[in-house]
Design a protein around this nucleic acid. Sequence first.
DNA 1: CGTTAATTTGAGACCATTCAATTTCGGTGG
DNA 2: CCACCGAAATTGAATGGTCTCAAATTAACG
Lengths: 242, 242
Amino acid sequence: MSEHHHLEPLARRWSKYSSKFTPADRDAVLALPYERKTFGKDAYLVREGERATVCMMLLRGFAFRQKLMSDGDRQIISFHIPTEFVDLQNGLLGVADHNVQSLNHSEVAVIPRTALMELAEERPSIRLAMWVDTLIDASIFREWVVNVGRRDSRARIAHLLCELAVRLERIGAGRAGTFDFPLTQEQLADATGLTAVHTNRTLQSLRRDGLIQLTNGILRVLDWDGLREVGDFDELYLHHKV
Amino acid sequence: MSEHHHLEPLARRWSKYSSKFTPADRDAVLALPYERKTFGKDAYLVREGERATVCMMLLRGFAFRQKLMSDGDRQIISFHIPTEFVDLQNGLLGVADHNVQSLNHSEVAVIPRTALMELAEERPSIRLAMWVDTLIDASIFREWVVNVGRRDSRARIAHLLCELAVRLERIGAGRAGTFDFPLTQEQLADATGLTAVHTNRTLQSLRRDGLIQLTNGILRVLDWDGLREVGDFDELYLHHKV
DNA sequence: CGTTAATTTGAGACCATTCAATTTCGGTGG
DNA sequence: CCACCGAAATTGAATGGTCTCAAATTAACG
């Protein structure tokens, strides 16, 4: 029964952060109160300025963080895939400083902030895992600053595709370089600081070079080394071996 | 004597994060082992790929984080001012994923990683303060993604100046809109994803509009509201009221 | 006071944007 | 199952913000 517990994948992922993660820690995670909730495409999970009373972990589907400019422009700050929290920092910071939207049809576990923070107080291994999660988030933000700040359009897109491919592969959501990839070109554009039009032309350029294939929401990485090269991609920043 | 302890400003800053921060917490911070070290302009405090054995807090001067591109281009990811750690995340992540350089002549407290982590284990208020520090860092990275991703050159520079002005004022390093501001235009450029040449022209434009005055390493904000407006600046993300 | 770093200026080239129109895709109802 | 619809992707041409490459001027420092 507990094998199909919705928080089981989270417990499994966290258990890898420390050799001190005990079965009791696992049970404590699974004992967290939570509520399942589904969101449609583009629905808001969190709104900027909101006081946080809960934290949300993705069970199914994708989500992304974003900030809106006064002129309506949008900058996407990160994408999130299942087993990841989309707003763990709000547990401590209290007020959301950015929005979180569902990318496609998604399902999340909504966990009361207090329960989560109390668990962190009581269990060293769990609090460490939570802290590490937020630190890896931060590392990804740093890499994104570099991506939009110093890479041209081909490199930006290539880098983003590399990152998502590696992360998806890690949670077993792709094999042989093939992934469900429901991002629209507009979302890709908002994540890389480009326009949708130029993103389209850039994708064509990557396709023309035989690096990727991207149609019908399926991404196929045809030339992994080539894509890494173009995207200047080094996965150290993902800290997958913490 | 303890009033002139080098870690006193850190203890004072952390004490504001929680009402539960006790005198014993303060004493524990001041009891941390540390070594003072000075760095010249552009000297490296941390190098990408390095295993972390220490964490560094700024006592005097500025520092910045950066990543280097294969073609030699540099992207600055954040600036740091006294009482801030420049690499606290390395205490947990273990391996540095980016470089840290001294901006001018600086002085830091070098604290053994293990001592810092043990202190966090033992003292809830201190671990909370440390976690919050890394979360605010992350929030600033997010805003920087937006800054380089979706703002034009005038807004980027204006926003960066706003951020630094607010943070400097907070630690009492400026009054009446006047600050010691030792950044070169090249560093400003590397932080905003622009070239030094264009940064120069953009600064001229901001000066021409009567928003700032920036000469001889002194920044004067002449029109605070105007600068905020141009930079699309909202300081919520700094979480100064945690 | 000499030497190097930092700032400033000019002109031309280029990458990405803007604005519009067209085509394809995905889902829905008849 | 096909017709229809809105969303997403694609194309074209013109515009523009930023870059590149030099060179000149000014400031910082030993």
